[in-house]
Design a protein around this nucleic acid. Structure first.
Lengths: 185, 185
DNA sequence: CCATAAAAGCGAATTATTTGCGTTAAGTGC
DNA sequence: GCACTTAACGCAAATAATTCGCTTTTATGG
């Protein structure tokens, strides 16, 4: 008996996911995050609310899902010719994305989601990019520290302050964090 | 004109707050956090749901409020005779409180709350205790680093991992963080 | 005590969420 | 291609949560 029977996927998942995600993005441009409701999204996406509830469970999970997709694209990782410069540039980019009102509320949605899958994916987003930067550095003959060390030293404090402080951190603060982990030559 | 007119408090606020807080605590012992609803709390507290909605706005804010109260008591800050030991002991205490299922969901509630007052209060909780430890250290003739530095180096990474990782950090990890900020003599 | 203001109660109206059931769209194997 | 299987969806009814207008209670100041 061959095991790999190939799973039946069924359904119409792709199209619905696209239109719902698009609806969320559009609504978030014109409405405050707290004012966006599931029925509102459903109507804008041309689906019924029950579809959304069945698929995502609650609005926090849906918003987190959209947020993650938005950050995935990973267009252009900076390339400054050195590991320290790359990390600093990426950290500033990340700060820029996450310290806006929209970015902050996305982070909150990601954290608030029941199953912490979203949070995991969010954290991996940083890890994966740091790995890319580190591989580049190794190829150049540098010996970068571990990604865990950089997350502890740079990204964790940044995210902490975005989530818990009144005012978002600025680039000067980021530079201080980077200096601690990666002393300039 | 004397300024201090004494504000009108009106209502029955104190009693209601107490019974609602108590109801939340009791319910969280027997129910999963996601299963606790506002009407449920209201009934258990002997008030109407609308009272809770008017006073706290939503369930996240209420749960965050209760969570913060729970952590305030600040019974016994460790006193090990040295700043490094004190910080390590407090960090381990904090980890113990926050890495449980209940602690984690409290952190999430605090972060998810709309007005970030709760998050501010939560962060100040750490700051205030570190200040106490630092004052003690100064009185002993030590010269401790700033609280901001310790938060960046120890508490931010700890909270980051509690919120974003699959598995909570352990004491060994905390010790590593402390070692980085406060090298042993 | 009386006036006042803040907070809470009550219940109806509104909205959001869950659920059951029939239907439809995709993938699978022949 | 064609039948078959299954996950995903729409619809609508049922349930639950949230908001709203109005009344009542309580603490405080005069």
């Amino acid at each position: 008996m061959t095991i790999h029977k190939g799973i039946r996927t069924g359904g119409r998942s792709a199209r619905v996911q696209q239109s719902v995600h698009a609806a969320v993005k559009k609504l978030l441009e014109s409405h405050d995050r707290a004012d966006v409701t599931v029925p509102m999204i459903a109507q804008s996406a041309g689906v019924t609310p029950s579809t959304i509830y069945r698929r995502w469970g609650d609005i926090a999970t849906l918003l987190a899902d959209v947020a993650l997709e938005r950050f995935e694209p990973d267009e252009h990782l900076p390339d400054t010719g050195g590991f320290r410069g790359d990390v600093l540039a990426y950290a500033e980019l990340y700060l820029d994305e996450m310290s806006s009102d929209l970015g902050r509320s996305m982070l909150r949605d990601v954290v608030a989601t029941d199953d912490n899958n979203c949070a995991l994916r969010c954290a991996e987003l940083i890890t994966k990019r740091l790995v890319v930067l580190a591989e580049r550095a190794v190829a150049r003959g540098e010996t970068p520290p571990s990604t865990a060390f950089l997350i502890d030293g740079i990204f964790a404090p940044m995210v902490y302050r975005i989530l818990f402080s009144e005012t978002a951190p600025d680039n000067a603060y980021i530079r201080t964090l980077v200096d601690r982990c990666l002393p300039a030559d």
